[in-house]
Write a protein that binds this DNA or RNA. Structure first.
Lengths: 158, 158
DNA sequence: ACCCTGGCTATGGAAATGGCAAGCCAGATC
DNA sequence: GATCTGGCTTGCCATTTCCATAGCCAGGGT
């Protein structure tokens, strides 16, 4: 059920394997409700400030602050755009780094749907090329599908 | 770069696609630094209260409260265990629902490593059966690997 | 009987987060 | 030139999260 720990490395002197772990720092940025929800809406196709505010259901002030942080972190970028007859405005788009968060958002969606009670949402992810539903899977470089129980956590050598 | 939105569904009347979305509710539980880090440590093999506290670097009080929430949410379970000559104690183990968070944690690890500066961690995930490194991928039910740019978000019919 | 340790709970305070409300600025519209 | 609108910023307050410290309890060790 839980992952295995390889070779006792993780326990030697009980050194925290996770210290300065990328997950720590990712959570410093994404570890609040609003940031993740803003990113979700950008994935879902919203890009304008007012859209994001309305869909996430948060106030202007909070949204502005989180968006600033996400831009500073390089996950979103502000891009000028102009609709005909409108003045130039800014929209928020995913950078390469932001787009790489897709598996995490897809994972949260999938997990929430199957493991939280009372799913009332109707969002699905599908593959543009073939229309089939998309799932998040763990796979090793030899090409095997890896169930959670077969994931081994280890420290690579210095 | 960003996901496409299919068929204008997401925008009809600007209805928030994400309202009551599983991601909202997942983030209500996991949208704080500590919860995710505690889960990470359980994945890494820690299970005893004191281990978790030390490795996550949080105080007893906060850890106890988050653990209580995670147990209440059915992500962790308390299991009595007894080491010889010791009294009975409780350890925290992943439930099925908790183990299903593996792709999300693996995704965060991978994302942080490749997209945040100065990665100093040494954790790797590998496949117990073949020792090859493990990655998180999006795959459709037809078996294609799906790059982020080919993920379509849509609302399924009521 | 006494202490010690692991695993908590309690209390108080600081910092982050979020809501509400108001104001500001640039440019399009009148 | 006055007004309106989108996209913010500012100020203030409530709530949540977190840290620090202290205390509690069960049961083994002595």
């Amino acid at each position: 059920m839980s992952m295995q720990v390889a070779g006792g490395l993780a326990r030697r002197g009980d050194v925290p394997l996770g210290a300065a772990c990328p997950i720590d720092r990712a959570m410093a940025l994404l570890g609040n409700r609003t940031s993740m929800l803003l990113l979700r809406e950008v994935f879902y196709g919203a890009s304008r400030f007012e859209q994001l505010v309305r869909r996430v259901g948060v106030t202007d002030a909070v949204a502005a602050q989180r968006l600033r942080e996400l831009v500073a972190a390089g996950v979103l970028a502000k891009q000028p755009y102009r609709e005909p007859g409108q003045r130039t405005r800014q929209e928020y788009v995913l950078t390469e780094s932001g787009a790489a968060l897709a598996p995490i958002l897809a994972g949260l969606l999938e997990w929430g749907r199957t493991h939280l009670p009372d799913d009332r949402s109707r969002v699905t992810l599908s593959h543009a090329e073939c229309d089939a539903p998309v799932h998040v899977v763990l796979r090793c470089e030899s090409g095997h599908d890896v169930p959670e129980s077969e994931v081994v956590v280890a420290a690579r050598r210095a």
